[in-house]
């Protein structure tokens, strides 16, 4: 009699549980009502099952966002873990939507779930992608603008992981500044 030994397939656990949020711009409702918690995941396999299933960012309607945040952190400035923090912001041209948007967003997610920032990964809150007609944006949110060492390490590592050329400069903006920005645009607290 042949004995079949079935190797139980063990999922690979992530350091953190993450939540995927989706925001669809419906002007008739307050913005909080447009924000939906889609699902949570905490293994590599569940991440891929989700990512391979949902619509690519480049195919979302203008005005939509995806956000992936650590479980318990809401993708908004007001959240306790975000209000003293800021974001490394990648602004893309319209042409980049078809070429690089999906690639940059996936790389951002792999940085998050893979804990790519060593011990500074503790400062990571999440990431947001805004699909907009005037130019898409991707950002990684961190929890403390004053933790310069963490912010700069995260920015440098992120820029490398995205494969951005040295001459391309990315900026880190405090949410408090973004929230109160006048028309002039937001000043960068750090750049790499």
């Amino acid at each position: 009699k042949e004995i079949l030994i079935v190797q139980p397939y063990m999922k690979h656990p992530l350091q953190n549980r993450w939540t995927l949020w989706f925001y669809k711009n419906d002007k008739n409702k307050p913005w909080q009502a447009n924000l939906r918690l889609v699902t949570k995941f905490d293994t590599v396999e569940d991440f891929w099952a989700l990512y391979n299933h949902i619509q690519l960012a480049s195919r979302l309607m203008s005005g939509c966002d995806y956000a992936v945040f650590k479980d318990g952190i809401e993708p908004m400035w007001e959240d306790n873990r975000n209000k003293c923090g800021g974001r490394w912001l990648i602004t893309l041209s319209k042409q980049q939507r078809m070429l690089e948007l999906d690639q940059y967003w996936l790389e951002t997610l792999l940085c998050l779930i893979g804990e790519a920032f060593d011990d500074y990964s503790n400062d990571i809150c999440g990431a947001v992608i805004n699909v907009r007609a005037k130019g898409d944006k991707i950002a990684i949110w961190t929890c403390d603008t004053e933790n310069e060492e963490a912010v700069l390490h995260i920015g440098k590592t992120y820029k490398e992981r995205l494969g951005l050329p040295m001459k391309v400069v990315i900026g880190y903006q405090a949410h408090a500044d973004t929230a109160t920005k006048s028309g002039l645009g937001v000043k960068n607290k750090f750049v790499v």
């Binding site: 690979h12 350091q15 396999e45 792999l110 804990e115 060593d118």
Partner: peptide, 18 residues
């Protein structure tokens, strides 16, 4: 404490595993 880290190569290899 320890931290569970996955590099890009490993994560991409897992993309189409069963």
């Amino acid at each position: 404490g320890t931290r569970i880290i996955y590099d890009r190569k490993f994560l991409m290899e897992c993309r189409h595993s069963p």
